[in-house]
Write a protein that binds this DNA or RNA. Structure first.
Lengths: 342, 342
DNA sequence: CTGAAAGCGCTTACAG
DNA sequence: CTGAAAGCGCTTACAG
């Protein structure tokens, strides 16, 4: 009683059927007569019976749990992702087990995750060493890196087409007449930041322009603010900045306005990446590259479902198209038009 | 093998001890000799053994799972809450099982939650009918409403001191010289919105002022934008607006600036509630009431741990103090000073 | 300290 | 369609 108490045996007794019959009445597709099912359901209702998902998981080997590992939620891209993910997974009959990681405790984290017999692991805003990915592979647990990848690890991943996105942004800036163009990176070891940067260089090169300056923001507000200050400290200022994600761009814009009295985009153009909800807010109206959370989640669920069902065993890498969203934070090249206001 | 495979019996065999000994070696505080534990750990290491958390949960009756139920994550207050919650709970040895709910499927949701044998349920940005709360009580699962409460249900809750917060805001506005003061509510049936409003009225009354106008924003961007438009449609406009939460206030400010060409706070003062991270951003610099997510989470964990351990059985209601954060979205009364910039 | 045994609440062959 | 039985991988009295 102290644990809730009602079991399938209790229901069986009341309904005068076997315990197996009760189990079958609650398993879609099991062979039970309508009459038996009805008796069982009635008894279950009366007793307030609810199948124990843990016992079911134990015996069936399917926990219905999928781990989502994140490191922080202050970048609004991740909450959006988690909401989509959670809804999509619930739709498929899975539940999200959330893990917040600190960089460093990777090893214990993976152990903990695996103890819960999760059917898959989604790593968002966090990454996995290839040795840890190997651990997971050994248990047959599919792992998917969301919004990042590790080139050396044979792990599934879903990313935006960061190269193409960076390229789009470079063209946009050069076509807008900018020549002293700077870049503020996220983390140096982030595949996402690196790809966006590489694409940006390619785009600049295609227009015959070379990067003016570069700084690192570390994906934090404070880091981005510092990067902005060093970039604009000298008189020889950039006329445009590509910030590796929206989250940092908000901090950059705040610093340029408040501390340098700069007007955007008249004095300097800012472009970024992600198109988080705040990017459309009136206080910023960021020109940015959208990476659709809905599309990324759809691809994630596709890959994972295939791997869980063993229809696929090979890791798969999905890439979501990048789409430029033109708003008001950067000078607009002739012939291009901005999105309608929010 | 297909399921990962290594069990405590496998380890026992290799270590030449009983299966119970293996179990004890992995239970902190169990009585095992150092020698046995060492043998077991070595064998476990070699085999890659990891205790099955589900089996442990089954037998011990403690799943280590706590359900967090939310309805949406676009209001940044909730991601912040979830991050704190998840870290605090992990610290205590619990893991967050995340449920996204749609208003309406309340019943099936609770059934699903309870099937997982969670040790407690935290309802944030969602609420529970008293009949469903009763269901949970019947199984002995503590339920806590976070940032809301249901007066009729004997359920634990943690809220900000919304009455006091509303009062503070009213005084601030009146002392700032405003007389045509409007309020934009969240949902009419939200205890949080109602309490903020009630406190606001009290504060106005204490200064001999009566509310000028009122509209409902429904906690959404679109709703808040619509509310702002109706409030400002006539020539007889408010000179200040208290918006029930920050999230809606951003939309209100955007509309007033973009569609009515109003300057804030020169033409109209805006105050709100929550102090989400964006409230400090340069584009808004909201004067708002902070409700500390860290404090709310600390109270939540306190209450829940006591109830899980059966040290407490009575529902408890905790109230977190409200603190006014003065920034630049409202005219500042003489003698008061604003927070330093971000 | 240690092992044999019972049992948590289910699912799923196996016979009938 | 139905029931008896085995078993998922553990924890925890119970003896020794």
């Amino acid at each position: 009683m102290s644990k809730g108490g009602v079991t399938s045996s209790d229901v069986a007794k009341l309904a005068k059927v076997s315990q197996s019959a009760v189990s079958r009445a609650f398993s879609p597709g099991a062979s039970v007569s309508a009459a038996t099912r009805k008796k069982v359901l009635k008894a279950a209702e009366k007793l307030g019976y609810r199948p124990n998902a843990l016992a079911r998981a134990m015996i069936s080997g399917r926990s219905g749990l999928i781990a989502v590992v994140v490191a922080y939620l202050d970048n609004q891209f991740y909450p959006v992702l988690i909401e989509h993910l959670s809804r999509a997974l619930q739709e498929k009959g899975y539940q999200v087990l959330l893990f917040m990681t600190d960089p460093g405790d990777q090893d214990t984290l993976v152990q903990k995750v695996l103890q819960f017999q999760v059917e898959a692991i989604i790593m968002a805003s966090a990454t996995l060493s290839s040795s840890l990915a190997g651990e997971c592979a050994k248990t047959g647990t599919p792992v998917l890196l969301l919004n990042r990848y590790v080139p050396s690890a044979p792990t599934s991943s879903v990313t935006s087409d960061n190269l193409e996105g960076g390229r789009l942004l470079a063209h946009f800036l050069v076509d807008g007449g900018h020549r002293r163009i700077a870049f503020i990176a996220g983390n140096e070891d982030s595949s996402t930041s690196r790809d966006r940067e590489a694409g940006f260089y390619r785009g600049l090169a295609e227009r015959g322009v070379v990067l003016w300056r570069r700084a690192v923001g570390g994906y934090t507000f404070e880091g981005a603010a510092r990067a902005a200050r060093t970039l604009f400290a000298s008189g020889d200022r950039p006329d445009a900045v590509f910030v590796a994600n929206d989250h940092m761009a908000f901090a950059v814009i705040d610093v340029l306005r408040a501390e340098f009295a700069l007007t955007i985009p008249d004095d300097v153009s800012i472009v970024a990446y992600d198109d988080v909800p705040e990017a459309g807010w009136g206080g910023y109206r960021l020109t940015t590259v959208a990476q659709s959370a809905a599309d990324m989640v759809a691809a994630t669920v596709d890959i994972l479902m295939a791997q869980i069902d063993r229809r696929a065993v090979q890791p798969r890498a999905a890439m979501i198209p990048a789409r430029l969203v033109i708003r008001d934070s950067a000078r607009i090249p002739p012939g291009r038009t901005r999105e309608p206001g929010r």
